[in-house]
């Protein structure tokens, strides 16, 4: 029984990777350009924003929650960062403050879910529109430009580090840190425990509420990082940035095999999920599929992936 089970677990774990490989093969067969170094670097830069958001989302979903407000937090923190930069503050410090905005916005989500006792879906649905509204208020509905003076800020979105786009490096470093946190630390164990059985976790002395607030704050931080990268790449903070980004992030987490019920899943899976979505976007463009059909195909891939995953269980 045990050996059979571990075979199943193996299939579970490798299924997303197999899917990704197949996808790469099919797209390469249709357009060899796909595997060119230029395109791959481009791809890495493209996926980094969804990647960062999806990593944070993985923690939230592992606790059995969800965060719909990530796109709005992205816009709000990038707008705040831009405003602070244009007011003449040192860009490095401004970026730190922008991250703090993300952390606080996420912490508010966490408070609503824990102290407020709200369902995560509802709480973050509400803050999604609140943070979007706040973004429109502080930007007056206009893009904030004039961010081009600081080299450090520019590097963050557009630079290269030994030939690799800085956003991709940021994503990779973040991934490693979060992987270690999730699998090697008390914090990670508690994240799984809360999603697996919140009552048992609380009775075992785990400070469930405090943990959850930190996890929503982490998700906010990841969104803020993504927002700052985006602003740097575009040389401006757009008040409408990040709309519907929550969907791609949730899709990546689900494609990676994490259960929306919480307690089960891996951040490596999320990384693969992010790559699958990225390869689809990039590859379908390369082979000239119209953007209308692209949406249909993306949706179908999610349906098929989840169906196979379910069959397997």
């Amino acid at each position: 029984m045990n050996s059979k089970l571990s075979v199943n677990t193996m299939i579970d774990r490798f299924l997303p990777l197999v899917g990704l490989t197949l996808l790469v093969i099919v797209i390469t067969a249709m357009n060899q350009q796909f595997l060119s170094p230029d395109n791959l670097l481009n791809l890495l830069r493209q996926v980094s924003i969804n990647g960062l958001i999806a990593f944070g989302m993985t923690f939230v979903i592992l606790t059995g929650g969800i965060d719909l407000s990530v796109g709005s937090i992205l816009a709000f923190s990038s707008a705040m960062t831009a405003l602070i930069i244009t007011s003449g503050v040192d860009p490095m410090f401004a970026m730190l403050l922008g991250c703090l905005v993300g952390v606080l916005s996420g912490a508010v989500n966490g408070l609503l879910v824990t102290a407020g006792g709200m369902a995560p879906f509802i709480a973050t649905l509400a803050t999604m529109t609140i943070y979007r509204g706040a973004t429109l208020v502080v930007t007056d509905g206009n893009p904030i430009t004039g961010l081009g003076d600081s080299l450090m800020f520019q590097l963050f979105g557009k630079g290269y580090f030994f030939g690799i786009p800085v956003p991709a490096v940021t994503m990779a470093v973040t991934f490693v840190i979060l992987y270690i946190i999730l699998h090697k630390t008390v914090f990670g164990r508690e994240t799984y425990a809360i999603g697996g059985n919140e009552t048992a976790a609380a009775l075992s002395g785990i400070k469930v509420n405090r943990r959850k607030i930190m996890i929503y704050a982490l998700s906010g931080l990841m969104s803020a990082l993504a927002g700052i990268i985006l602003a740097s790449r575009l040389d401006s903070a757009q008040p409408t940035a990040g709309e519907t980004y929550e969907l791609d992030a949730i899709a990546a987490v689900v494609l990676g095999g994490t259960s929306l019920m919480g307690g089960k899943g891996r951040i490596v899976g999320t990384l693969i999920g992010v790559l699958i979505i990225g390869v689809l976007n990039n590859g379908l463009n390369l082979i000239g599929v119209s953007s209308f059909y692209q949406q249909i195909i993306k949706g179908l891939v999610i349906v098929i992936a989840v169906l196979i995953d379910r069959k397997n269980k």
Partner: peptide
């Protein structure tokens, strides 16, 4: 419902109250 995390391994369950 209150004692175990059913998806956790035996060892992960056992160290839960004393992770410190």
């Amino acid at each position: 419902s209150e004692g175990l995390i059913l998806d956790f391994s035996l060892v992960d369950n056992m160290t839960m109250p004393s992770m410190g």
